[in-house]
Design a protein around this nucleic acid. Structure first.
Lengths: 173, 173
DNA sequence: GTAAGAAGTAAGTGATTACTCACTTTTTCA
DNA sequence: TGAAAAAGTGAGTAATCACTTACTTCTTAC
């Protein structure tokens, strides 16, 4: 990975996250990266290839997060940890997650299986705790996480902490 | 409102919702509407004007929904009704809501105050029921609604009904 | 040290973009 | 009825789009 390759990926990530994939031209990416436009196509074949490289890089970073979940034994720890996920997004990770969530609405590119590992960890946790419908409970938490992630990524609410408390209390934490 | 004007609005709504605003050209809209491209600009000035007309039309349709909420007296009815909102989206309304939710990620166009009336109705309802932090509880429900709307609009889950049950039971319904 | 291949550039390509303009057709209404 | 206004068209426009090509510079390894 050349220095200029990384510059391109970083510039593209930020622009795709801010303005959207379709609305960002390869010209803009090249200018922001301080690179000739042709270089983008030498390294990433086409605009879709550039997007895929960004996504692959991001997925590798996420692998660790799933692994951390699987190592927890107490089901209550699992649930608490999952609820806390959206609150753990670091500032430097925001563009990547903004991109992921915006791509949901652009059909052809999005990989909807991404969050499956989390859900798969959640179901046995609710099962162990004796919930009547572990599947639905897991789904409910996933829905909540997605909603909260949107809230945080669009930096709409300042009182995220009190929302978290309200949520945790619904599971008797 | 001419017949061709309505054709343009309908075609634009469907295309914007399916492919995204930026990825949809005025040429495509004209072809789908069976109209010359110039007519779009005669009636709606420019592409942004076309989008704004669609949004305004949608907002007028939504006004009734808020009114319905305000007429409820029992706070429990209010909360139940709000939770049910995402499940009430009709097939013909899907393109409009898909557009609204996808626009959240395109910064400059989105009106984030849209859901304020719902939240304002929710806070006194939780207050009356003696919840410790009505503001946070209202926000939590709003987050849930947005997450669930995304789930339904992207038609990911078939078991929406059991998610709804799980959610309602968290508020002792 | 040099040759081969990878990295990088600048100036293109045709297609598509949002939008305009000169013009014709239809509608409105006094 | 007739004339002004509104609706509608089709062929433009310059700018921008994703992408290519011919070329130069840098890196690597024997």
């Amino acid at each position: 990975m050349t220095e200029k390759q990384e510059k391109i990926l970083q510039a593209a990530l930020e622009l795709f996250a801010e303005q959207g994939f379709a609305a960002t031209s390869t010209n803009k990416v090249a200018k922001k990266a301080g690179v000739s436009e042709g270089l983008i196509f030498r390294h990433f074949t086409n605009k879709d290839g550039l997007l895929n490289s960004i996504l692959q890089q991001g997925h590798e970073k996420m692998a660790g997060l799933f692994h951390e979940l699987e190592s927890l034994n107490d089901p209550k720890d699992v649930i608490r940890k999952v609820i806390e996920i959206p609150f753990m997004i670091k500032d430097e990770e925001m563009p990547f997650w903004r991109l992921i969530y915006s791509l949901k609405w652009q059909a052809d590119v999005y990989d909807s299986t991404m969050s499956n590992p989390i859900k798969s960890t959640l179901i046995p946790a609710f099962s162990k705790l004796g919930y009547q419908n572990p599947e639905a409970e897991a789904q409910l938490i996933m829905v909540f996480i997605d909603g909260l992630a949107v809230e945080i990524l669009l930096r709409k609410s300042g009182n995220a902490q009190s929302i978290k408390s309200s949520m945790l209390s619904k599971y008797n934490f």
